Simulated scan of single mutants.
Amino acid sequence: MNDLLVAIGVANEDALRTLLQQWDDILKAVGPDLVVADYAPASCLMSRGRIPLLIIGNGYTLPPSEMKRFPLIHRSYAPLWDEDETLSAVNRAMRSVGRLPLERLPEIFAADARFVETFPLFDPYDAQRLESANGPVFGSPPAGRQQDAHLVLVYLSRGYEPRLDIVKALRPLASRLYIHSPQLTPEQSADLGQGGARIHPHPLPLRELLPLARLVVHLGGSGLSAEALAAGVPQLVLATHIEQQLNATALESAGVGQMIKDFDPNSRVSPDMVEALLADEAMAQRAMNVGEQHRNMLEAMKPIAAFETAALKLLYT
């Protein structure tokens, strides 16, 4: 997490000071009764202690604030930046705008209330977290996968250019495909469309399609990973960065998914691999069972109601 904070400029004392001053101006001008922040360190640093603060985020973007230091959450590469140096830079910027310094860098995520939008399975800080995860927020509760589900949903967000091997691996399944992939070339779209694929220019209606899906192919974002998990659909994750890799690893550990490290030039997706996933009855049954468990968990968590309760408590106490 320290590396991520450095990457967005938190360790740049001058840049952070400017952000803090600008947030100070905004807060003075608006005079909010409550600040709800999602991975917004500067706004949190200026809000905390003066305005009720509720921080939201998934497990990856909202680490526990009680920790002494940020732990390693993967071993793909060693940390690039020194956490003590980041803390020193943050505290110099804080003092320069009249704010109290932090004792520990994880305090940057401290708040009056916190709302962790994920299932414990996807929380890389689950072992360190004192609070319970609140569960992902969906527009409506996902329905379970039907026994005769056969569709293959492919959801590749804007900015991702599908590799040639992925398109070739999906081509034999074109008649079962529902695909949203804005970066498909016109030739790829035409080829898949001729095979019967339904190509959607807009995001797929997941609530309608997940119960009919035997497999979801996607990049491993927290939202779709959680929704497909709760629906009981096996997943093939084409991970392009660490957060997606962590989500895919969690799915693999639960026996309901498989990961391809898309950032690895030696990785390949083949038609046989996809066919094997579709034919894996044991994985399909595990996904059904795990999905039911997580739908029950979601019903007990009631995340939207929990968020509203936390927000109203801060507003009226």
Rank of each mutant, 00 (worst) to 15 (best):
A7I: 09
I8W: 11
Q22P: 06
A37W: 01
A42T: 00
S47P: 05
S47W: 01
R48W: 13
Y60F: 07
L62P: 00
P71D: 00
I73Q: 08
I73K: 01
R75C: 07
D84M: 04
T86C: 10
R95I: 13
G98K: 06
P101T: 07
L102F: 09
A127Q: 13
L130E: 15
G135P: 13
A143Y: 02
Q146C: 13
A149L: 12
S157P: 05
G159T: 07
E161Q: 15
V167T: 08
K168T: 13
P172L: 01
A174G: 08
A174V: 10
Y178F: 07
H180S: 05
Q183K: 12
L184A: 03
E187Q: 11
L192W: 04
L192H: 00
L192F: 03
P203C: 03
L206R: 02
L212Q: 14
L212F: 03
V216E: 05
H218W: 04
L219P: 02
G221R: 05
A228H: 01
L229N: 04
G232K: 11
V233A: 00
V233E: 02
L236W: 07
H241W: 07
Q244C: 06
A248H: 00
V256P: 10
V256S: 04
V269S: 05
V269C: 06
M273D: 11
A276F: 09
L278I: 11
L278H: 14
A279D: 15
A279N: 15
Q285W: 03
A287H: 13
A287D: 13
V290W: 11
Q293S: 14
A300I: 14
A306E: 13
A311E: 01
K313A: 00
Y316S: 11
